[in-house]
């Protein structure tokens, strides 16, 4: 007799999320005039694209059962270093090279973290708390906390907003949402259609079995954390595109938004679960909520409280009933 209750099917999580988001969206559409406008929706997409990009990287790490809260520090460091390197080496208007520099820096930091976790057998939360301090501390010291406005040309060219037309009306939007789309598709492909991606899930589901079956665990860790580092880099650069400046301290502190989005979307801190679609929905669920509250004129201080509450309630909802009857540990 099987002793397991039917577990929540991952597709069902996505369905619930979509429904909730539609409900909230409908609510805001009906009660405000502005919500359902293209301008607002593009703004929404634009505002949360960077969070979405970060969440793609974090999802990959969560799937392996680890956690990393240093990615925003990594993103900030990448922003700063990329500008420096581009200036040093003379990369001014070549997007490809500039991006490569950024991604390489991010991936290297990520792989460094992955190595510490795997080869030194240290719990991921502690490594990443430490790395956040190391990265952020060094960054603030080196930059003196000052913003950089003098960016290489490639950042300006693709940054800012671009106009386009739908019908007769002109709209503006940055490249953020497109980058998010690309990263989402890439992550989805890796997680679902490459062996390495499936091994990530396998390891998250049963690390000991993965070891016994000869999965290359070192490579797996390097990839997962390296990928998060790369996504941090992409997100960081996208943020620079948006803001058209590098502000060293602007990103750090919003880790929970990204983590909550992934967890709402079905990922678990215990590993083995989660998917791209759910995570994206999680990001935009939070985004829609914040956007709606904003349209209502709720102060941003208070909307933080609301979001915090919603996240806690949502986490309760996704965790409730997942434990076996006689278990008391974490789910």
């Amino acid at each position: 007799m099987a002793d397991t209750k039917a577990k929540t099917h991952p597709d069902r999580v996505v369905l619930y999320l979509a429904l909730v988001m539609l409900a909230i969206g409908a609510f805001f559409s009906l009660t405000t005039t502005v919500f359902l406008s293209f301008a607002n929706l593009f703004n929404l997409l634009e505002s949360y694209a960077v969070t979405g990009i970060f969440s793609m990287g974090l999802l990959v790490v969560l799937v392996t059962g680890g956690i990393d809260i240093s990615f925003l520090a990594t993103a900030s460091v990448v922003q700063y270093l990329t500008v420096l390197v581009c200036r040093q080496v003379g990369i001014d208007d070549v997007l490809f090279l500039g991006l490569t520099v950024a991604i390489v820096i991010g991936a290297c930091i990520g792989m460094g973290i992955g190595s510490l976790i795997y080869y030194l057998d240290i719990v991921s939360i502690i490594v990443t708390i430490s790395m956040q301090s190391v990265l952020f501390g060094l960054l603030m010291h080196a930059s003196g906390g000052r913003s950089i406005y003098n960016l290489p040309a490639w950042m300006f060219r693709y940054g800012g907003t671009h106009s386009f037309k739908i019908g007769d009306t002109a709209y503006v939007m940055g490249v953020g949402p497109l980058v998010l789309l690309a990263m989402a598709i890439l992550t989805w492909f890796i997680l679902n259609h490459t062996t390495l991606g499936r091994q990530l899930y396998a390891f998250g589901g049963n690390p000991e079995a993965a070891r016994r079956l000869g999965v290359n665990l070192g490579r797996l860790h390097l990839f997962a954390y390296g990928y998060l580092g790369a996504m941090a880099a992409v997100g960081g650069i996208t943020q620079v595109f948006r803001m058209e400046e590098v502000v060293p301290s602007s990103l750090v502190g919003r880790e929970l938004d990204v983590l909550a989005a992934a967890v709402l979307g079905g990922a678990s801190l215990m590993g083995g679960r989660g998917g791209v679609l759910g995570t994206i929905l999680g990001v935009f669920l939070i985004g829609v909520l914040k956007n709606g509250l904003n349209l209502y004129g709720v102060s941003s201080y208070f909307s933080d409280v609301v979001i915090g509450l919603v996240i806690i309630l949502a986490v309760i909802a996704t965790h409730y009933g997942k434990r076996k009857e006689t278990e008391v540990g974490f789910v």
């Binding site: 679902n192 259609h193 490459t194 062996t195 390495l196 991606g197 499936r198 899930y201 396998a202 998250g204 589901g205 049963n206 079995a209 993965a210 079956l213 000869g214 999965v215 083995g272 679960r273």
Partner: peptide, 23 residues
């Protein structure tokens, strides 16, 4: 076994092991 993966993924798991091939 990997509880979070499907039956066929578990059965054929080693088929792709060692190659970063397309799944």
């Amino acid at each position: 076994l990997f509880p979070n993966l499907s039956v066929y993924e578990n059965i054929a798991f080693e088929y792709n092991l060692g190659h970063t091939r397309l799944y």
